[in-house]
Amino acid sequence: MSAPLLEVRDLAKQYTTRGSTLTILQNISFDIGKGEVVGLVGESGSGKTTIGRSVLRLIEPSAGSVRFDGTELTELSASQMRRARPRMQYIFQDPFASLSPRMTIGEILTEGLKIQGTGNSKERLDRARKALEQVDLPADAVNRYAHEFSGGQRQRIGIARALTLQPEFIVADEPVSALDVSIQAQVINLLRDLQQRLGLTMLFISHDLAVVEYICDRVIVLYLGRVMEIAPSAELYADPHHPYTRALLSAIPSPDPDAHRNRQILKGDIPSPANPPSGCVFRTRCPKAISRCAEVVPELRETAPGRFKACIRDDLNGSVS
């Protein structure tokens, strides 16, 4: 991995409601190297979006460290954070809800530039037109409104909005999940091309493991606010080490109807963060759980070069296979 652009250590997020505390994230640690695409996967309710928004301080983390290119973001004032934001941008999941219906596309794309005080109105509009061309939309789209575009085109506009500020780092939060399957591949290929052409660093959030395999260099597997496994993409898909990762990968549909796969069906739903299991949070659904899993929270440990796993069976020198 190249030198880290983003370093996250012991990130936590809690909410207090009606006198009870909801722990959404706990002890989240990972790095993303410059020019790297890291996938963040897990079931709904695992905390993926909370991580994406916390690292950019769109919501404030409760604890932990987030260093971007050596700068501790959690210590920046509001004005300092505003000046740092052009270097890091967010692509939202819903391409329609994230675009104001009352603003032209030109106004949407230049809003961030205006807030940052970048250039005059003509220069800002020129940069907006260039961003539209980068996402394969006509420059004259600046004069139209979001409702005039299809879902795939609106997501391209969302991508263009992120590009206008010429960022180095992008959080892409399930950027194709709201799109038709036929359009998803086009948008994913566009993101991959932009990432390579512009040298972007990216945290790619998705529940679609096939998409993650295609676009990501490394993968972080999340369950109920904790990291279960981190590995290079090719290694993780070829040889998953954590029982949860194995279950997720076994559920990927195969294009070959004659292919035989050892399906590992997880029983029940992901627990509520209001009442998480003791010890390992995955133990209530884990086919390899032992009694001590209820007593000890497994640490995320490096089990091989570049591979990390949180499993009590390692602590006992046992195999999860």
Rank of each mutant, 00 (worst) to 15 (best):
A141C: 15
P255Q: 13
A84M: 15
F30P: 03
Q26I: 00
I159L: 04
G268E: 11
F282T: 13
I188E: 02
T284S: 15
L22P: 11
G119I: 13
R85T: 02
G33I: 07
S77I: 07
R127S: 11
P86K: 12
L6I: 15
R197V: 04
N317W: 05
G151V: 08
A128H: 00
V41H: 01
A97L: 07
K130H: 06
A210P: 11
R283K: 08
C280T: 10
H147D: 07
S54M: 06
S46Q: 02
Q14N: 11
L73T: 09
L224M: 05
S291W: 00
V38C: 02
G225N: 06
R87D: 13
D315F: 08
R261K: 12
N262S: 12
L179R: 02
Q186H: 12
Q186E: 08
T71W: 00
D217W: 01
L165V: 12
Q93D: 06
S20V: 09
D94N: 10
S177F: 03
A304S: 15
L222H: 01
S250H: 01
C280H: 07
T164H: 00
R307P: 05
R9K: 14
L109D: 01
D239C: 04
D193C: 01
L40F: 09
R218T: 14
L191V: 10
V38A: 08
P175A: 08
S321I: 08
G119D: 07
P95Y: 02
P287F: 08
T17I: 09
M81Y: 02
N120V: 05
A128V: 00
N120Q: 09
R144P: 05
I205A: 07
V211L: 01
G39R: 09
K48A: 07
D256V: 11
L198P: 03
Y244D: 05
S177I: 10
V227F: 00
G151R: 14
C311V: 09
P255G: 05
D69A: 15
S77M: 01
Q166Y: 00
R263K: 14
K34W: 04
L113Y: 01
M202K: 01
G112D: 06
